[in-house]
Amino acid sequence: MKFSLRTYTAYSIACAVVWAAILIVVATVRPQSLHMFVIVFFGWAIGWLSATVARSVYPPPRQRGQQAQSS
């Protein structure tokens, strides 16, 4: 099994780790700001979800070398 960090799955996992760390910091340092954090997080999550749907619906672009060979 090939292991690569340059995948959308690795990006998503890294984002989840970073958001969890930010949540811990906000909850311990400024608990009164937790509501604003949740609003910002949900805004980011909507963007992530739309990008994930777009990646699954639309095919990746062909590379230039493949385009010239198929014509």
Rank of each mutant, 00 (worst) to 15 (best):
I22F: 06
S70G: 01
A54D: 10
I22W: 01
V38S: 08
P31N: 09
S33D: 14
A21E: 13
I13W: 12
P60Q: 07
V40R: 02
F41E: 07
V53W: 05
F42N: 07
T7Q: 06
R6K: 14
V53R: 04
C15Y: 04
W19M: 08
V57A: 12
I46N: 05
Q32K: 15
F37K: 02
V29K: 09
Y8S: 09
V17M: 10
V26M: 11
P60N: 06
L34V: 15
A14S: 04
L23A: 14
Y8V: 06
W48N: 03
V29W: 07
V29A: 12
V40F: 04
A45Q: 14
Q66H: 06
V25G: 03
M36R: 06
T7V: 03
V25Y: 12
L34H: 12
P59R: 15
Q66R: 01
I24R: 11
F41D: 05
F3M: 10
M36F: 01
T28W: 12
T9M: 13
C15A: 10
I13Q: 11
Q69K: 06
G47L: 12
Y58C: 10
Y8P: 01
R64P: 02
W44V: 10
R55C: 04
L5E: 08
S70F: 00
A27S: 15
Q66W: 00
Q66E: 04
C15I: 00
V57H: 09
C15S: 13
V38H: 03
W48K: 02
I46G: 02
H35I: 09
P31C: 11
L49N: 05
Y8I: 06
R30K: 07
I46F: 05
A10R: 14
W44P: 00
R55I: 06
C15P: 00
S33K: 10
I22H: 00
A54H: 14
W19S: 04
G65A: 07
L5M: 11
Q66C: 00
V57G: 05
A51M: 12
V53T: 07
V57Q: 09
R30P: 02
F3S: 06
I22R: 00
F37M: 00
I13T: 11
P61F: 03
Q67L: 12
Q67F: 01
V18R: 01
Q67S: 07
V17C: 05
